[in-house]
Every structure is written in C-alpha cells, then in structure tokens.
C-alpha cells in the first residue's frame, strides 16, 4: 500500500501522474489564492491529494490536523462553500470557527485589515476567506501569519471550485488534457470562470467561452487565448464538457441583459442545445442553479449527463486536500505507510 492513489476506488481507473514533479516540496506555496500561476504538477498534486479523501469520510491518520484552528471568514453570503469548508476542516479534526459577517464589526465600520489583524492575534492556523472585492484574499494574506485559502474574491478567482470541477472531470472522463470544454454564461463577472479557464488550459484542455457580448470582457479571445462564441449552438458543438455558470439575477434586469426569458432563449442549456454536444457530454454547474434561466430542469436532473451533485461531493475532498497540504508543516512528520483510510475512520 505504498501508493496512496491505490486507496481510491470507484468506476474509473486510478489516476497516473502525467506531469513530472520536481524533487522536494510538490506544493511550495504558503497560501492558495488562485489558480493563475500554478504549475501543472502542482495542480495535479492537489487533485491527487483530494482523490485520497474522496472515499474516506475521515482523514487518514497522517493527514489529520487535530488541534489546529481554522477560521472561515465569509464576507459574502454562502451556504455550500462555507459548509463544505467546515465539513472538510472537521473531517481533518481541525477546530473550525465560522465568522458570520452580518454580526461582525465590519458592519460597524472596521476595515478589512483591522479585522485581519484582530483575527491574526487569535493565532489561527488557516484562514479561509470569501470577500466581494477582487484581491481581498491577497490583501489579507500579506497581513496575517497563517495560511490563507481564497474561497472566492469578487470577480477574481475561486480556486477550490476550479479544483473540484477538475477532479470531477478527471474522475468521469479519466483525463483533462485534450477535452473540449465549453464554459457558458456570465464570464465577465465570474470568478469561477476565471479560475477554471486558468486551470483547464494549464492542464491541456481546449476551452471555449460562450456568452452574450455584454457578459464578456472586451477582447476576451486575446486575453484568455480561448475561442469565444456569442452563439451557444456554435459554442457547445461537439463539447465533451459543458460548464454552466450561475447568472446573478440583478444582472438580468436590463443592465447587462434584457430579461431572464431572453437569456434562457438564447443561452439557457436545454436538451435541444445539449444534443449538439458530444454524446457522452458532462454537464456541470457550480450551484446554486437558476432553473429555467441558465439551465433547464430536465437537463440539470438528467443523471446520465449531469455531474452537478458529484461536484458538491468532490468539493469536500478538494477542500480537505487544500487544508491539509497548507498545514502539513504544522504537524509532526508521520509515517506515510500508516496512512490508511481504515485507520482514519476509527
């Protein structure tokens, strides 16, 4: 049982590393602030780590992080991401504390950095932060002494979402490299889109962007180096994966788009449009879904294509991996050979 990857099970064959890892630390970063700039071997390492946690409800002994403090600092409303990080931390044995923004002193005028310094004085080991402003996670990371995981900053990045999407794709398709992946919807405002574009192109997938022109950055094609389609039928033709993005309702009241009705007509994922994609197409959505706006209920619930539930499940594994990797210097070196799922469960 020397290879931890053998612990993974499920329908697909165990993943074999495609990228050579250099000698030494396979993930020499203090924080996880974004996907941009990560090497393929680093992404693969995080995915392989996550793979170990997929089947284990409790972390194996060597990955347990008893006694460490994890603070979830969420300035934006979130249910699934916050829950996912809490469960991930608890499964690693960490003491998790979630900081509710509505009750915080931020509302009383305290600045982000004041809050950071206050929390830092409480000596957490890892800080998970979500904030409505792009760059907020980076700003915090510069001010605190612990590891920071970006759980979404404004329109910038949402790295754990991209990782869980990648893990889902890899498990379902056996690879990422060479896949045709269409990312559809509000590219302009989406941190999920940005992180996924970086991750998927880094891992060798062929990404296409599908959006109305008002929800695309100008010159998106040149900026991201991906083909851009404003007609969905053309954009998802032959795609192996169709990744839908959540559309904020307030963007549809006439500012960026005329109405939900028109958006669904031209950009909603219906069975009719999906028929243009590959036969074994995988449908993904980061949730929560706006049924009848970006995705038809029949498509979202079609288990032969939809991986939406699986994405949520992979979310916990990916977050366990990120938390354990970023805190592994804080625990006594353990015997990797003792790293077994069954022991972790006890």
């Amino acid at each position: 049982m020397g290879d931890p990857r053998e612990l993974t099970s499920g329908g697909t064959a165990p993943h074999r590393p495609r990228y050579t890892r250099p000698a030494g630390d396979p993930f020499a970063h203090r924080h996880l602030l974004g996907i941009e700039g990560l090497h393929p071997f680093e992404i693969e390492f995080l995915l392989d780590e996550a793979e170990r946690f997929v089947r284990c409800r409790r972390a194996p002994a060597a990955s347990r992080r008893e006694g460490l403090t994890q603070i979830n600092l969420f300035f934006e409303a979130s249910t699934r991401t916050l829950m996912s990080f809490e469960i991930a931390g608890k499964r690693l044995g960490m003491d998790t504390v979630s900081f509710a923004v509505a009750a915080s002193s931020i509302k009383k005028g305290e600045t982000l950095l004041d809050t950071a310094q206050t929390l830092n004085a409480m000596r957490p080991d890892v800080l998970v932060v979500r904030h409505g402003s792009s760059g907020a996670a980076l700003l915090l990371a510069r001010k605190v002494n612990c590891a920071v995981i970006n759980a979404g900053d404004g329109r910038h990045e949402h790295p754990t979402q991209a990782l869980l999407d990648a893990l889902t794709i890899r498990r379902r398709k056996g690879r990422i490299e060479g896949l045709e992946i269409a990312i559809c919807g509000d590219i302009l405002h989406s941190r999920v889109a940005r992180s996924n574009i970086h991750l998927l192109t880094t891992m060798g997938a062929r990404v296409r962007l599908v959006a109305p022109p008002t929800l695309l950055p100008n010159d998106a094609q040149d900026i991201f180096g991906t083909p851009v389609f404003t007609r969905m039928e053309e954009g998802i033709e032959g795609a192996d994966v169709v990744m839908m993005l959540r559309l904020q309702k307030e963007r549809m009241a006439g500012a960026y788009l005329p109405s939900e009705k028109e958006f669904f007509h031209f950009y909603g994922l219906t069975a009719e449009k999906l028929a243009l994609a590959a036969d074994d197409v995988l449908v993904m959505h980061p949730g929560p879904m706006n049924r009848g706006v970006e995705i038809a209920t029949a498509v979202a619930d079609d288990l032969s294509h939809s991986a939406i539930e699986e994405q949520v499940e992979m979310g916990v594994a990916v977050r366990m991996a990120c938390l354990s990797v970023l805190t592994r210097h804080l625990v006594e070196p353990a015997d990797e050979n003792a790293d077994e799922c069954s022991r972790g469960r006890e």
């Binding site: 009241a253 006439g254 500012a255 960026y256 788009l257 005329p258 109405s259 009705k261 028109e262 007509h265 031209f266």
Partner: peptide, 13 residues
Amino acid sequence: QGLDGAAMAELGL
C-alpha cells in the same frame, strides 16, 4: 424597456 433609457429591452427576441 418602455423607452425609459435605463433597462435594456428584449433585443434578441
């Protein structure tokens, strides 16, 4: 919408 100069009408439809 309604020529209000504020919210885009359903141009596509």
